[in-house]
Design a protein around this nucleic acid. Sequence first.
DNA 1: CGCTTGCTTGGAGTGCACTCCAAGGTCATA
DNA 2: TATGACCTTGGAGTGCACTCCAAGCAAGCG
Lengths: 158, 158
Amino acid sequence: MQSTAETTRPNASRTDICSAPPRRHPRPDGQDHYTISEVVAFTGLTAHTLRWYERIGLMSHIDRSHTGQRRYSNRDLDWLDFVGKLRMTGMPVADMVRYAELVREGENTYLDRRELLESTRRDVLTRIAELQDTLAVLDRKISFYGDAGRAREGERTR
Amino acid sequence: MQSTAETTRPNASRTDICSAPPRRHPRPDGQDHYTISEVVAFTGLTAHTLRWYERIGLMSHIDRSHTGQRRYSNRDLDWLDFVGKLRMTGMPVADMVRYAELVREGENTYLDRRELLESTRRDVLTRIAELQDTLAVLDRKISFYGDAGRAREGERTR
DNA sequence: CGCTTGCTTGGAGTGCACTCCAAGGTCATA
DNA sequence: TATGACCTTGGAGTGCACTCCAAGCAAGCG
């Protein structure tokens, strides 16, 4: 597919974390015909999983060599990267597939995609808050054990 | 079924670290003999799950009524609360069971428990960082869609 | 050419964390 | 006392996200 130069734009001062995608592809566009095992090495996913992603529609059709072997592009790598991020949010694979379908449907699905992403964003914020709460609990317990464990005042669940 | 007040705690301004558990039990110690369905209402877990937790050793033996029905205590509620927190960290149930076993083994396992909690704490910090990273990616994409979607400069995975 | 290594497929299997079932006993209310 | 909601058990079933298998084609090398 048409190589769209480098996506790495500084995109200055996005909210708080960092800024732009520091995407560095293993090979430049045009030479990006990765075998499945290369993608395995890059992404940490298994070949099984990569084929499965394709089967369920989480990845649109992957280019093939003249003998039918998969050849992944930089674009595919980007997508896998994004999917990895979504996966970390706990989003079910089925929802990711829906997003992928929206992408395939074209520009008229921009609004739906945006809504999906925003709802995901809310989920992520919630999860971060929960984790920080959990962190507080852990710190309390750790400091309890840290106190040699002999001042066992008030701790219930040990 | 008897509706025991409201469980909805405002959870007032949990700073972040330390301080004591703001536990508010449905009934005071001494009257804490909750049926399984009461615990279902308090925790949001299903009765199936509660019994399963007990079977796999995630909860130590629960008190029984004279006819053999479960009667949960405030202590059990605290434990379930903590388990809920651990669950949110993504800790496998098997690891929680190990922790529960350490608790049952007594005070000589303080060190192991502390180590387990500290390793969990590190996991939580990692996950928070990952989620914040994900948040940045989502924000980038959302702002892309936010720009009416017509300035489609550079966005690759859409 | 044979050998090894890598890739292909559909379909079956795995592990986790529940989730449900059947058959029966218990409890509160009318 | 009888109705219906609730509780008990062991074991089987479910859904998700992979994970693996067998059989076979393909590519590179001595």
